[in-house]
């Protein structure tokens, strides 16, 4: 059973997104929340890193945190999903464990 990884720090400030992506197993999911959402904006320098990690993994962004930082769904890099709080719960349920990268 796969793992849901959560990241809540901006990759521009911390290395936790990088560490998270380095520790993904086949079929895992990544949820970017709080300040981490800034790393999912199209044109940003972490888009390529996310794409490279993505083949077998899904990457999502928590919508309320994105909105709070003045961004919309259109601002996300290609292939990144947008989930609300209910979607967060669905992800937690669909995975065997949650691993937080603080």
């Amino acid at each position: 059973m796969p793992t849901l990884h959560t990241v809540n720090k901006s990759p521009y400030e911390r290395s936790s997104l990088r560490s998270c992506l380095d520790h993904l197993a086949e079929g895992d999911s990544v949820l970017m929340m709080e300040d981490a959402v800034v790393g999912a904006r199209r044109g940003g320098k972490f888009v390529e890193v996310l794409k490279a990690a993505r083949p077998s993994c899904t990457v999502s962004v928590l919508a309320p945190d994105l909105a709070a930082r003045g961004m919309k769904a259109d601002d996300l890099a290609e292939g990144i999903a947008l989930v609300d709080y209910g979607g967060f719960v669905d992800l937690a349920v669909a995975n065997a464990r949650v691993c937080a990268w603080l």
Binding site: P2, T3, H23, L24, A25, R97, C99, A100, W101, L102
Partner: peptide, 18 residues
């Protein structure tokens, strides 16, 4: 190794991060 860490995470019931 990092790959062993990945496997270690995958076999847990609970992961607590600090």
């Amino acid at each position: 190794d990092r790959s062993e860490m990945v496997r270690l995470i995958a076999e847990q019931d609970v992961v607590l991060s600090f």
